[in-house]
Design a protein around this nucleic acid. Structure first.
Lengths: 135, 135
DNA sequence: ACTTGACTTAGAGTGTACTCTAAGTTGTAG
DNA sequence: CTACAACTTAGAGTACACTCTAAGTCAAGT
C-alpha cells in the first residue's frame, strides 16, 4: 500500500483520530463530512483538512453535541462564509451547554467528596471497634 | 389526594427530582431502588429516604455513570455496611472518570475559545471591507 | 495462479435508556 | 351515579449512535 502523497486511508484516519472505519463511513453517509475523494481503486483518501474536520467533529461529540446538531453545523460549514455568524452562535450555545455541564460535574465532585469522607469515617470507626473487641 | 404523612406520590417525586413517572417505575423494575411501599390502594408512597436515594442515582446518571454500574452500586448498598469498602472504591473510580471528563471539557473550551475568536476576527474583517466598499 | 488483506456497498442488527400503550382499578368531586 | 384524574401492570415501541454482515472488487506478494 503506497500512499505516497499526504493523504490517508480510512484505516489510518481511524487510528489517528480514534473513530472506527465504520463510524467514518457512517459520518460521511449522514453528511457530517463531504464525500471523500477517491483513489483510482475507489478507496477513500483523506486529506489533512478532512482529518482536521473529523477531529473537530469528534471533539463536539465528546463534549455532548448530538449528531443532529453536528449535521446542522456541517451543513452551514459547507455553505461557506455567509453562515459564519450562525456557526459562531452555535458554538457559543454549545459552549454555554458545556459550561453548564461542568457546573453539574463540579457540584457532583463536591458531593462525592463529602460522601467518601463520611463513608471512610464510618469505616475507620468500625475498624477501631474491631480492634477494641480483639484486645 | 390527601397524602397526610411525609410520603410522596410517584407524581410528586417525579416533579421534585426531575425524573418521569415512567422512569421511576423503570428504576424500581430494574432494581435501582427497592420495591416502594404501597398505600392501601396499591399506589406507591415514597419516603424522604427513597427520594434522597433517587436524587443520588440521578446525580450518578447526570455525571455519566451507566445503569449497569448503578445497579451494581444499588445491590451493594442493599447488602449493608459490609460492602462499604467496595462502594467507596466505586465512588472513587467514578470520581476519577468524572475528573477525566472535566479535563476533556476544559480542553474543548480552550479550543472553542480560540475558534470563536478566529471566526469573529474573520467576521470583523469582512465587515470593515464592506464599509470600505460602501464608501 | 492464488491467497491475503484492505477496501467497497446497502442494509440489517445492537445496546442503552428510556418512553409509551392498553387495559384496568381506585378515590374524590359534582 | 357518573365523570375524572391518578394510579397500576406487562409488555411493546422509540431514539440515538453506532456496529456489523454479506457479497464483492482490487492490488500486492509468493
Amino acid at each position: 500500500m503506497t500512499t505516497n502523497d499526504d493523504t490517508l486511508t480510512i484505516q489510518q484516519v481511524a487510528e489517528t483520530i480514534g473513530l472506527s472505519v465504520h463510524t467514518l463511513r457512517y459520518y460521511e453517509r449522514i453528511g457530517l463530512i463531504h464525500p471523500i475523494n477517491r483513489a483510482a481503486n475507489t478507496h477513500r483518501r483523506y486529506t489533512q483538512d478532512d482529518v482536521g474536520w473529523l477531529d473537530f467533529l469528534n471533539k463536539l461529540r465528546a463534549t455532548g453535541m448530538s449528531i443532529r446538531q453536528m449535521q446542522a453545523y456541517a451543513q452551514l460549514q459547507r455553505q461557506g462564509d455567509a453562515t459564519l455568524p450562525e456557526r459562531i452562535e452555535m458554538l457559543k450555545v454549545h459552549r454555554r451547554d458545556v459550561e453548564a455541564h461542568m457546573d453539574v460535574l463540579r457540584e457532583f465532585l463536591k458531593l462525592i467528596h463529602y460522601k467518601i469522607d463520611y463513608y471512610e469515617g464510618l469505616l475507620a470507626e468500625a475498624e477501631s471497634e474491631a480492634v477494641l473487641e480483639g484486645s
